[in-house]
Structure formats: C-alpha cells, structure tokens
Amino acid sequence: MTDHENTPQDRNMSLKLFVVLTRALESIEKQVIKDIKSHGLNLTEFSVLELLYHKGDQPIQKIGQKILLSSSSMTYVVDQLEKKKWLERKACPKDRRVTYAAITSTGQELMNRIFPQHTEAIHQIMDGLTTDEKEFMIGQLKKLGYHARSLQE
C-alpha cells in the first residue's frame, strides 16, 4: 500500500484524474488518427509500417503482440499492406514455420515521406505543454503506469 491519503477528497480526485486522462487521450488519439488518415492509412496499417520502418523485419506473429492486434486481424492487415506493395512476407531461413514481414522499398519511401510529417503533427498536438511540463508529465505518467501494473502482479 502507498503512504498517500485515503480520504473522500482523495478518492474523488482519483476519479477526476481518471476522467481527465481518458478525455485527454481521446482528444489526442482523434488528432493522431486524423493525421494518419490524411496519408491514406488507417491506424493499424500505420502501426505495422512504423514498427517495420524503425525495427526492421519482424515475425508476423510478434507484430500482433507488439501493436496489440489479434492474429486474424494481423493476417488481414499484412494482406492489405502486401497488396499495396508496402510490405512483403519472407520465410525465416532457420524455421520454416515462421514468416517475417519486411517493409518494401515502396513502403520505405512512403514512411520516409510521411513520418517526418507525422512527427510534426504529434509535436503540434503536444505543443500545449512546455518542454519542462512534458518532462514532468512523462515522469508522472510513468509512475502512475508502473503503480497500476504492480497491482496486477
């Protein structure tokens, strides 16, 4: 247990914080999705391409885990991205049961073009805070996330 207050006012502040965090996240997500859609992608397609762009080839099964997507949905998204020639499947030379997704040169060109714009859009969304406020929020939100995670154990 923590050494924090356990008063009715503190419990009410916990509820208020939850509501404010949820609404802020919804507003931020809407803007991020709007930006991604402006590039002709949906959030899942962008998430897969962004992962491959920054981390290189990935086993398809692992991509779903990393971006929190079911394996049936993952297959559909990989199929769609393959049709658009933005990724390709590659067999694993060491284990034939494993298939990798790899970003193609066309996918790489797309991400080279849109990722800087996406980064700028995220910056504009977060620009309501100063650099110091962002650092403070990052610390506080990590602390809150770690505490919530510890309750699951």
Rank of each mutant, 00 (worst) to 15 (best):
S70V: 10
K55F: 06
V78I: 15
D79L: 08
T106D: 12
H54Q: 15
A102Y: 03
I125P: 12
L68Y: 09
G128R: 07
Q117Y: 08
L52V: 10
E109I: 06
R113Q: 09
I67D: 07
D57E: 15
D57P: 03
S70G: 13
K94R: 14
D95H: 10
E45W: 04
M137F: 02
K62C: 07
I67P: 00
Y76T: 15
I122G: 07
Q80I: 14
M126F: 08
P116N: 01
Q80E: 15
I138N: 11
S47V: 03
I67C: 01
R113H: 09
F136G: 08
Q58M: 11
Y100I: 15
M126K: 05
L68C: 02
Q108W: 00
Y100F: 15
I138D: 09
L141F: 10
F46T: 09
K55W: 08
L110Q: 06
I60Y: 02
W86G: 05
F46H: 13
I103W: 05
K66N: 11
T106Y: 10
T130Y: 08
G64L: 13
I63Y: 07
T99P: 08
T130E: 00
M137K: 00
H118L: 03
N112M: 10
M137W: 10
K85N: 12
G128E: 12
Q80A: 13
Q65W: 01
G56E: 07
I103C: 00
L87D: 04
T130M: 04
A121P: 05
L81E: 08
K66W: 01
Y100Q: 14
A101N: 03
P59C: 11
D127W: 14
